[in-house]
Design a protein around this nucleic acid. Structure first.
Lengths: 210, 210
DNA sequence: TTCAGAATACCACTTTCGCGGTATTGGGTG
DNA sequence: CACCCAATACCGCGAAAGTGGTATTCTGAA
């Protein structure tokens, strides 16, 4: 019996998955939390084989939770769960040691297979994203893969733009020159192949950059 | 036994909810589709008491599906399901005759209660949004409720802005004057209290306007 | 039928953006 | 050590956005 911990802020989803598995599936959802901070505690107290974790959560997101776990020495295999097909998330998850990646529009059979593979410390990638992943590791610079060439500073700038700040306001907030901000903006727009800041924000949200 | 049809493009969620209900709950998920266009057909062929429908779906969204159903003379009670707490969606759903509204982070108990109420043609509102709804019907013009004062044309303009079009390009696409587009943009920014088009797009996406 | 609001259109003005360069510094890697 | 790249900074220009006001037409609701 594979014991699974679900980390997801959508109760209905978590409860649904929990009721989905029968004893004959050899998979059991033993625990559930909506807060990434509670995961280390749960892992210490209970016997857990696989963590099924949503990427986007309000308190601590999936990637942050993974970093927390690695820092505390936990190595329970993690299957990441997401709504979107963002290569940035996939890459981030893999970098931090996620064992697999599955979309929320997968079927029960796919989820079962994914949990079983991850439990054996093998990798699982949902078919919808596997092509992107392969392309990425082949070094193909597709449109999507260029997203994660953004630096931390650039992402910071994007967040300010999304809040309606102009270059001058951003410069004052970050204690840098307005010229610098403009250079960052130009680099960002160029990297993401967008023509306006509005389009930039849409892309950034679609790809979970911000 | 309340027979429920789920309309949702997230298989895992739908399968999860399906397995969640036991015979003793007196609720059964009898059908599932990811395409709103198939709903009329399913309603004609099978006995269905309640429709549990996601608001945002790729092919035909929740509101559009509801309009389709009403036009074809169906009056099966509908419980709308969403990730976000958007007063615009709530209002749109109520206008078109939805019986209730529930968030995806609700619990099983809440969903059960919601389905039971909707089946009796009573209304159900998830606690997290009920206050907003009450405020709205009290006529309180909160910040949020101003979102749905946007006209169809204005929303159309926003979508073009999000694609990176400038005013001239939008004007050419819609066969109107660039002056008109600029007026629309000004009205939109004023209504939503945003200073830049980038902030506008973020807000529009956050509130599911586009 | 009157009246509000949506969609359309125009003028004028200031500010900001987007784009073309170029260049220095500092941190990390082979 | 040499090299790369991110972050920083500056100049200038044309295009677009953002802001102000005004006005006509049309539809739908009171």
């Amino acid at each position: 019996m594979i014991k699974v911990l679900i980390v997801d802020d959508h109760h209905l989803f978590a409860e649904g998955v929990k009721s989905m598995f029968r004893p004959e599936d050899d998979i059991e959802i033993t625990h559930h939390t909506i807060n990434g901070n509670e995961v280390p505690h749960l892992l210490s107290k209970h016997e857990i084989d696989v963590i099924l974790m949503d990427v986007s959560m309000p308190i601590l997101n999936g990637i942050e939770t993974m970093i927390l776990l690695k820092n505390e020495g936990h190595d329970t295999p993690i299957l990441m769960l997401t709504m979107h097909q963002s290569i940035k998330q996939v890459k981030g998850a893999l970098r931090k040691g996620a064992q697999g990646y599955i979309l929320k529009d997968a079927s029960k059979a796919e989820l079962k297979q994914a949990i079983e593979l991850v439990n054996k410390r093998e990798n699982y990638f949902h078919p919808k994203i596997s092509n992107q992943v392969f392309d990425y590791f082949r070094g193909k610079n597709s449109l999507v893969s260029e997203l994660d060439t953004l630096s931390e500073r650039e992402i910071e700038i994007i967040k300010y733009i999304a809040e309606g700040c102009n270059s001058k306001a951003i410069a004052e907030s970050l204690f840098i020159s307005e010229h610098t901000v403009k250079t960052h903006r130009r680099n960002i727009m160029h990297k993401l192949h967008v023509k306006t800041s509005a389009e930039l924000i849409k892309l950034a949200i679609d790809k979970d950059i911000i």
